[in-house]
């Protein structure tokens, strides 16, 4: 059958924060953004087998095989994460490969608990052929076709890319990291033109489930451009949810670690401004650091 393999950081069988209901979530390895505020920076890079991590592993769970690739023995790993801390590529040796069948088996085993599955990461759309094959297989399976297939994305995928996965897709949750291109470029390393195009494209095809804003007071420019943000939201179908999350420093590395986490008061103030402008379908996070 298919020998496509996914490069995966982690897989959860229970999540109530990655889409509606209880979902199986796959965090793919590799991202085409390089956000200063990334909470899982070890999912950004692709391992180049430099081997720097081998020396710091106290469990001796890492080694170099004959093909010159770093190999991870998960059975003796105590998850101290020293390897992740030292990795110069923002990557991790603790990744796994899955075939479509591997994941289907896991979904089968847990199907009574699931409302659907979500692909996240990293950026799952960087492994688009795999994701398409996976969603197709789910939709073609009598026991699993009722499970909704969602993508959690940075929105950088082209319209052509979305068009390919559209027939098997139930919903997309898109992160909008900043409004102005300069602010976005600084925060993520990329321009946001394609993000806006993805939002509009998906909305037009009734596949946009949610826009996610991580509110970073004083650093990010959402406050200044709140009117334009409002206009965009009002242009979108009523079914699109707007989720507000508060910036926190958990998991963050580098300069952003020194930035001020967003408090409940700050988030509420931002939400209030949106409410006053007539945006009602907001979901605010319950979690603050």
């Amino acid at each position: 059958m298919n020998s496509l393999q996914a490069n995966v950081s982690k897989l959860f069988t229970f999540s109530c924060v990655d889409g509606p209901g209880n979902r199986l979530v796959i965090f793919f390895q590799g991202c085409n953004f390089n956000c200063l505020t990334c909470h899982n920076p070890h999912t950004i890079g692709i391992c180049n087998h430099c081997g720097d991590c081998i020396a710091v592993c106290a469990d001796k769970a890492l080694s170099m095989n004959k093909q010159g690739k770093v190999v991870w023995d998960s059975s003796i790993c105590t998850q101290c994460d020293k390897c992740v801390e030292i990795c110069p590529e923002s990557s991790s040796p603790k990744t796994r490969r899955y075939t479509v069948d591997d994941i289907l088996n896991i979904i089968m085993e847990n199907r009574y608990f699931l409302s659907g599955i979500t692909v996240s990461g990293g950026e799952a759309t960087m492994q688009l052929p795999f994701v398409i094959e996976l969603f197709k297989a789910i939709k073609n399976n009598d026991e699993l076709e009722h499970l909704t297939c969602f993508v959690d994305s940075n929105g950088f995928l082209s319209e052509k890319g979305w068009a390919r996965i559209l027939p098997y897709l139930d919903g997309v949750m898109v992160d909008l990291k900043a409004w102005q291109n300069e602010n976005h470029q600084w925060l993520t390393g990329r321009s946001n033109h394609r993000v806006f195009r993805s939002i509009r494209y998906l909305a037009a095809h009734q596949k946009l489930h949610e826009i996610r804003l991580i509110y970073i007071p004083k650093i990010q420019d959402m406050d200044e451009h709140i009117d334009s943000l409002t206009e965009l939201v009002q242009d979108l179908p009523d079914s699109v949810n707007i989720r507000l999350n508060a910036f926190g420093i958990h998991g963050v590395v580098g300069d952003a670690k020194k930035w001020e986490p967003c408090s409940q008061e700050q988030l509420n103030a931002f939400a209030d401004r949106l409410y006053k402008k007539g945006i009602t379908r907001l979901t605010k996070t319950e979690v603050f650091q």
Binding site: M173, N245, H250
Partner: peptide
């Protein structure tokens, strides 16, 4: 929280 993992460590 949505979209991210917490490390065991």
């Amino acid at each position: 929280v949505t979209g991210f993992m917490i490390k065991l460590s």
